[in-house]
C-alpha cells in the first residue's frame, strides 16, 4: 500500500515538473501569439475591445501593409530556398564522396573542417566571413555585402547539417544494390540516379528542410554578412524591435512561426510516407 502511494506521489511530482517546464518554455510564445491580437497598441495591457479603427486582426493587416516587412519576408524565403538547394546538392555530393573516401585521416580532416561552422560560435563564423568579404572587396576595389555574400555564408553553415543528415543513411544502404545495378549494365551515373538517390531521398529531403529552417532562423551570421541592400526577416524584426514597435512585431513573428512549423510538419509527413513505402516493398 505504502509503496503504491509513494509511487503515485512520485508520478504526480514528475507530471507537475514536466508541465511546469513546458509552461515556462511556451509562455513567451503563447503571450506573443495572444498579444498579436491586442486591440491596444501595447505589449503589456491586453484588450479585446476591438473598434472599427482597430478591428480584430488589425496588427496582421498592418504587417501586410508594411512593404519593408514583405520585402524582408520575400528575401528570407528566396535566400532560404536557394541556399538550401545549393547546400543540399553540394552536401549530397560531399557526403557521397566522403563515404567512398577510404583514407581515414583525410576523411577526418575534411569532416572536421566542414563541421567548424557548427562547432564555432555563430559570432566567430560571422565575423570571419565578414573579414573575408571586406578584404576581398578592398583588394578588388569594389563590391558590397548583400545577397551574394549572404548566400555564400548560408550555404557554408548549412553544409555540415546536410552532410550530417545524409551520411547515416549512406551507411544504412545495402552496398550490393549499386553493385547489382552496375553488373546489370548501368553506368555509375545511372546507378547513382536510379538506385542510390531514391534510397537517399528521405535523408536528402530532411537535410534540405533542415537547411531551409536554419537559414530562415539565422540572425547572427546574417548580421555580419549582409549589407543594407538586402535585409532578411530576422534582421528586419531585430531592427523593428529596437524601435520597439508594438503588437505588429508579434503578428509578424507569429506568421513567421507558422511558416517554419508548416515546413517542419511537411518534412515529417514526407519522411514518414517514404519510410512506409520502403517498408512495404
Amino acid at each position: 500500500m505504502r509503496a503504491t502511494k509513494a509511487a503515485k506521489i512520485a508520478k504526480a511530482f514528475k507530471r507537475i515538473y514536466t508541465v511546469l517546464i513546458l509552461l515556462a518554455l511556451y509562455a513567451p510564445i503563447v503571450i506573443m501569439v495572444f498579444y498579436s491580437f491586442n486591440a491596444l497598441r501595447s505589449t503589456s495591457t491586453m484588450s479585446f475591445a476591438y473598434t472599427s479603427e482597430r478591428p480584430f486582426g488589425y496588427w496582421y493587416a498592418e504587417v501586410f501593409k508594411n512593404e519593408a516587412a514583405l520585402i524582408a519576408l520575400r528575401n528570407s524565403v528566396v535566400l532560404a530556398l536557394l541556399s538550401g538547394f545549393i547546400s543540399t546538392v553540394l552536401g549530397t555530393v560531399a557526403a557521397y564522396g566522403l563515404f567512398h573516401l577510404h583514407r581515414r585521416r583525410l576523411r577526418a580532416v575534411i569532416t572536421n573542417v566542414t563541421n567548424m561552422p557548427m562547432m564555432n560560435p555563430d559570432i566567430v563564423t560571422g565575423i570571419s566571413m565578414m573579414l573575408l568579404f571586406a578584404t576581398t572587396f578592398a583588394i578588388v576595389g569594389s563590391g558590397q555585402t548583400g545577397f551574394v555574400t549572404l548566400l555564400i555564408a548560408h550555404i557554408t553553415f548549412n553544409l555540415p547539417y546536410v552532410i550530417l543528415s545524409i551520411s547515416p543513411r549512406l551507411h544504412q544502404m545495402d552496398r550490393n544494390l549499386p553493385e547489382a545495378a552496375l553488373d546489370l549494365g548501368c553506368t555509375p551515373l545511372q546507378s547513382f540516379f536510379k538506385v542510390e538517390l531514391p534510397f537517399l531521398f528521405p535523408a536528402i529531403l530532411s537535410g534540405f528542410i533542415m537547411a531551409i529552417t536554419l537559414s530562415l532562423d539565422d540572425y547572427v551570421i546574417s548580421l555580419f554578412t549582409s549589407g543594407s541592400s538586402f535585409e532578411t526577416l530576422p534582421l528586419f524584426i531585430f531592427n523593428m524591435a529596437r524601435k520597439s514597435v508594438p503588437p505588429s512585431i508579434y503578428a509578424l513573428s507569429t506568421l513567421f512561426l507558422l511558416i517554419v512549423l508548416a515546413l517542419l510538419i511537411t518534412s515529417n509527413v514526407i519522411q514518414r510516407k517514404t519510410e512506409q513505402k520502403q517498408g512495404a516493398h
Binding site: 553540394l90 555530393v93 560531399a94 557521397y96 564522396g97 566522403l98 563515404f99 567512398h100 573516401l101 577510404h102 575534411i110 573542417v113 566542414t114 567548424m116 561552422p117 563564423t125 570571419s128 566571413m129 573579414l131 573575408l132 578584404t135 555564400i152 555564408a153 550555404i155 557554408t156 553544409l159
Partner: peptide, 22 residues
C-alpha cells in the same frame, strides 16, 4: 572519391579555413 569532393574541399578552404586565418 577526391574528384567528387573537389568542389566541397574548395568551398571549405575558401569559406571556412581562409576566413578563420583572416
Amino acid at each position: 572519391p577526391m574528384g567528387l569532393l573537389s568542389v566541397h574541399v574548395f568551398w571549405c578552404v575558401a569559406f571556412i579555413v581562409i576566413p578563420l586565418l583572416f
